[in-house]
Design a protein around this nucleic acid. Sequence first.
DNA 1: AAATTAAGTTTCACATAGTGGAACAAATTT
DNA 2: AAATTTGTTCCACTATGTGAAACTTAATTT
Lengths: 265, 265
Amino acid sequence: MAKAEQSDGTVGKALNVLDQVAGFGHPVRFRELLASSDYPKATLYRLLQTLVQQRMLTFDAERQTYSPGVRLVRLAHHAWQQSSLAPVARPYLDALSRSIGETVHLAQLDHSQVLYVDKRNANVPVEMFSQAGKVGPVYCTGVGKAMLAWSRIDDQTRIIEQQSFHRFTDNTLTSRRALRAELDIICSRGFAFDNEEHEPGIICVALPILSEGGRVLGGLSVTSTTARHSLDSLAALVPQLKTTVGQISEDAENWLFPEQSKTHA
Amino acid sequence: MAKAEQSDGTVGKALNVLDQVAGFGHPVRFRELLASSDYPKATLYRLLQTLVQQRMLTFDAERQTYSPGVRLVRLAHHAWQQSSLAPVARPYLDALSRSIGETVHLAQLDHSQVLYVDKRNANVPVEMFSQAGKVGPVYCTGVGKAMLAWSRIDDQTRIIEQQSFHRFTDNTLTSRRALRAELDIICSRGFAFDNEEHEPGIICVALPILSEGGRVLGGLSVTSTTARHSLDSLAALVPQLKTTVGQISEDAENWLFPEQSKTHA
DNA sequence: AAATTAAGTTTCACATAGTGGAACAAATTT
DNA sequence: AAATTTGTTCCACTATGTGAAACTTAATTT
């Protein structure tokens, strides 16, 4: 019983394969997939066929490669619209971005990772999906730590357990102990910083977006560079962020927001 | 044998259910799903459970409703990035949009429908996913007709067969005959119009994006209103569109583009 | 060009995984 | 409190998926 992963039934296997293909980040051949797959040849082959037939994967007959299929884009549109904070938050993000003029991120938790669901960039027009749908680590991003700090204790424990604590920079927190201490500080301070913990020269302030009941709905952050801002000058933006967060959570409350599905155990 | 739909195996069924939930456009209860489902109670119930467990669906325990899950957003990011024209086309769309100042759409074909994969809106900042991931009809949109006109004959036939020909406006083409005639005109003219066929007051010009081999990769359109433009003044933009389309298809060629998976027979 | 190796596809005896009618439980309505 | 509707579980049955091995096709090597 080496693997206690989630893997229920054929559907689970198929979705694993889908993730695997998506994870490669480029069109991938059968051989490559097989090498990094737990499933035997014939099984993997059949799963791929099924996914292609279902248009969840695209198969390039010439190059014999698999890529994630466009059907996903369509499904995701619905998901984004119905199950993310983005549609509700949009006008407030616009306003905040206009007023602050720095990059603004809206994120949610997905499976122990930070999932960015929207973004405003003062300069460049916008980057669409290229940013929405991206994932990042929880333990070394502002939104990640902010959301984690206010999560229910059991979720928090589980998520902390699943972090890799890879050292991206000199400032990256690289132990559960250090992260827990940081979360305490964040809680009492009321917001989180990212002090060049993920990328050198990049800093940010982040607040959690909470429901009335105190449940974590998402996170909101303003990102800048050490050239333009200090942590203190970012902290000065917190009141504005507070306002935006308040507006979003109030609207979300009315929009009858679906509960994050609880993972078993 | 009323339904000759695609429905292979458990995975197919699960994905059908996923589509069904997404299609509702709002959180939906078991009862509602059951009413419009082909599957028996217990089966549907199990499929839903599996999808929730896999985080493809989100279940709101309080309201007892299902919605598409955020995991889809993450997967779609990969799909959009790898299997759509959007990343390649981005800089050219930016340039075109800046130069023309009207709404620009980038679309691809997905399962007999138009799937919008990117968009530029001159005025409003941008609408993200709210547009990327949206689908539209083939027979009454500029991009749809443009892509269809240059499709391989067997694809064309199949797609025409699957259109609903719902009448949106007085100008909507409402028969296969009318559509085929229009496609001929489009081919000889070299580009397609949408002459208020989908929405009153909205017109557009569209060109297909073709690979070197002549395969349809996608479509590009400029949309405007009858207040600001006539078909003739839109036609004047075609040279610019031609340039953009050329740039995109050239880049796409190099980016080693995956083949649209062929549907069985 | 023939031989060798590797990549991709198909087969088939086998059993796991999914099926769905029906009984049951919980929540709503009368 | 009885009746009705909605959601969950059971379990005998079998359709679906399994995977080692055989086979075909393509790519390399001799």
